[in-house]
Design a protein around this nucleic acid. Structure first.
Lengths: 159, 159
DNA sequence: TTTTATACGACTGATTTGATCGGAGATCAT
DNA sequence: ATGATCTCCGATCAAATCAGTCGTATAAAA
């Protein structure tokens, strides 16, 4: 329950990868393409492509066509919030249907609804949480890639 | 996105209704049945029944069979957390697939996954949020039922 | 024993989601 | 400049999940 979709998963993975290659320790902005990311994380290529297209439309990343093309971050990692990414991929996030409805499309039980107010508070809290966390924060805690470990043991593991 | 299911909606509504009738200003514990709740909130009866059965199994409410039967709260409203209700109705809540997996069913991209750690933090925060809010808290903020208003103006609007 | 209510399981239709295919546009090499 | 290649892009298809339905069984009160 409350599980986010594959699209969201793949999107976040890809963004983390792009950000790492662009702002990482290599210190040179590198354009990465869809195929590269898909193979790295074992994601179906076409599906990932669609995800990246959506993110591109939202201005989160920039697409570059042609050979040697690919994607680049559209903003600074600090300015890319998780909330924006998720909303871009899966539409406006709301705990319930009547989160931000207009007067017309009120749900049937709206006038007798007794849980709307407290749920709105919960929703607001979750949104704040997702809106305060940025891609920059996600880069900090990469669990398996530790730069120090590369210097200590150099057994062909440079990624 | 992140929208909770109808089952969860209906379950919360029903619980709020049951709690209000049991601990409300009427000051007498009243057993409410499925049909009554369904009509009050315009919910399909059979679906609500299923939801209430599930909640009953979890010990959140108690079922009483036969005529004059119905449902009663199984615990004090302060001890019924939103998290418990949601988990009861929709299974364990987790932002991602690999939230609490055993060693066996690791996902394909697990070893290269770069977003697991930060997402776990988000998930933990959401769980705390839902685990700290109880049914008691939801009763406090009932928007349409105001006890004071009944005393001030008694124009047949007692709901 | 009849009435009234919940408990339980199987089933159907619809919505959402995951995944796939063919084409359009841009860039580099010649 | 032009062709060939590589990428992004939009439309389409299949699978899984979910909301809702139906019929039957069981239990308690009158």
């Amino acid at each position: 329950m409350l599980k986010l979709s594959k699209k969201a998963d793949y999107g976040l993975m890809a963004l983390q990868h792009i950000a790492s290659n662009q702002y990482g320790d290599v210190a040179q902005a590198r354009v990465v393409n869809t195929k590269e990311i898909a193979e790295e994380y074992h994601i179906p290529v076409e599906l990932l492509a669609k995800v990246l297209q959506t993110l591109s439309k939202s201005g989160i990343i920039e697409s570059h066509n042609g050979p040697k093309g690919g994607y680049l971050l559209g903003k600074n990692p600090r300015e890319i919030t998780i909330a924006h990414v998720l909303e871009s991929l899966e539409g406006p996030l709301g705990i319930m249907d009547c989160s931000h409805e207009k007067d017309g499309d009120a749900c049937m039980q709206r006038e007798h609804c007794n849980i709307r107010t407290p749920l709105l508070k919960i929703q607001s809290s979750i949104y704040q949480l997702l809106n305060n966390m940025t891609l920059q924060d996600m880069m900090g805690g990469t669990p398996l890639i530790t730069i120090q470990s590369v210097t200590t043991e150099q057994q062909g593991v440079e990624r």
